[in-house]
């Protein structure tokens, strides 16, 4: 038969990589400011938060699930971190609290979805509201300021002169999940559960635990993202993060993930998140109004999936 049918699953990642490179090329031609090294560092910095969320979202989507609550988790963990990061409190306390909140929220989502069998869409829509509510209650509805200098350094500091720690965290997380998804038995189980949960169960895989764990991962990473965002903006606001879940979903879909599960590569999450931030960075620099940016984002997303669908149809 046809040789190219074999590598079908990586088609969309490939297409998006090309689109990403074309975008970078065009933007570099249009604006010399875009092509500078420090702007690329900038882009990675701006990708980091959505990128970290996309990694967690990617894991959930690989199992065929969905998590609409990550934006709210960013808000809650960010507010709590900001409240705890005042004055001379050791920064480890807000850091662990934010991550802990993410973990607990993820555990809640995972238990409801996996063990009580409530559809993920419903569960996470519910926890989205619930967690957002907690963020408002805890903060009294207002932004929290007065974050300590030390805490600000978590995301704000640069190493090797120019490289922001924020970017380092992001790349470390991507690398860790590339490793987990590619190399570990657990990672493979995520794919198997997403590909066919019933077949995975018959094969002796503990499907419920795998499903629970991916929501935990999404929660933990959202907690980390919230903590980092608080450090980056030196404040924690209860509205922060609303809509972030959709950006994360957009990133993984652009990156070639199938919403029905089982399909998607680690580099897809990276490419998808980068496509989105290159787009807004480049268009900002060119002075294109944000309204048009929404337009272009929408076209790219639907276009990416279309190319993929058509490609698959043609090869079969």
């Amino acid at each position: 038969m046809k040789k190219n049918a074999v590598h079908l699953s990586s088609l969309r990642e490939f297409v998006m990589l090309i689109i990403l490179l074309i975008m970078v090329g065009i933007l570099s031609l249009l604006s010399p400011a875009f092509a500078r090294l420090n702007n690329f560092i900038n882009i990675f910095k701006q990708t980091a938060i959505n990128g970290i969320l996309a990694v967690g979202m990617g894991c959930v989507i690989l199992t065929g699930g969905f998590d609409l609550s990550v934006g709210s988790i960013v808000g809650l963990s960010g507010v709590v971190a900001a409240l705890l990061a005042q004055g001379n409190t050791p920064i480890i306390i807000p850091i662990l609290s934010a991550i802990g909140i993410g973990g607990v929220a993820g555990l809640l989502n995972g238990t409801l979805v996996s063990y009580l069998g409530i559809p993920a869409f419903v569960v996470t829509l519910g926890t989205q509201n619930f967690i957002r509510g907690l963020a408002y209650i805890i903060s009294g509805g207002r932004p929290v300021f007065g974050v300590s200098r030390a805490y600000e350094q978590i995301a704000g500091m640069n190493i090797f002169g120019q490289v922001p720690l924020l970017v380092v965290y992001y790349l470390v997380i991507v690398a860790a999940f590339a490793f987990i998804l590619q190399k570990t038995v657990y990672g493979r189980h995520i794919y198997l559960v997403g590909g066919n949960a019933e077949a995975a169960r018959v094969s002796g895989i503990n499907v419920k635990d795998v499903k629970l764990s991916v929501y935990m991962i999404a929660g933990l990473l959202a907690g980390i993202a919230g903590m980092l965002l608080t450090s980056r903006t030196v404040s924690g606001s209860p509205i922060t993060g609303s809509g972030y879940e959709l950006d994360a979903i957009a990133a993984v879909v652009i990156g070639g993930f199938s919403l029905s599960g089982g399909v998607g590569k680690w580099y897809g999450m990276l490419i998808g998140a980068l496509v989105l931030s290159v787009l807004s960075n480049g268009l900002d620099i060119l002075g294109v109004a944000s309204y048009y940016q929404y337009l272009i984002k929408g076209i790219i997303m639907v276009g990416a999936v279309y190319i993929d669908v058509r490609g698959r149809a043609r090869m079969q």
Binding site: S31, A33, F34, R36, N38, N39, N42, K45, Q46, P143, L229, R232, T233, S235, S237, I239, T240, S280, N281, D284, I285, A289, S290
Partner: peptide, 21 residues
């Protein structure tokens, strides 16, 4: 440009504007 009253959006916009030189 609008940053919709938020710190995060303002930060990203300001970074990108400063980038243009």
């Amino acid at each position: 440009e609008t940053a919709n009253w938020t710190t995060e959006e303002a930060l990203v916009l300001a970074e990108n504007w400063l980038q243009t030189g």
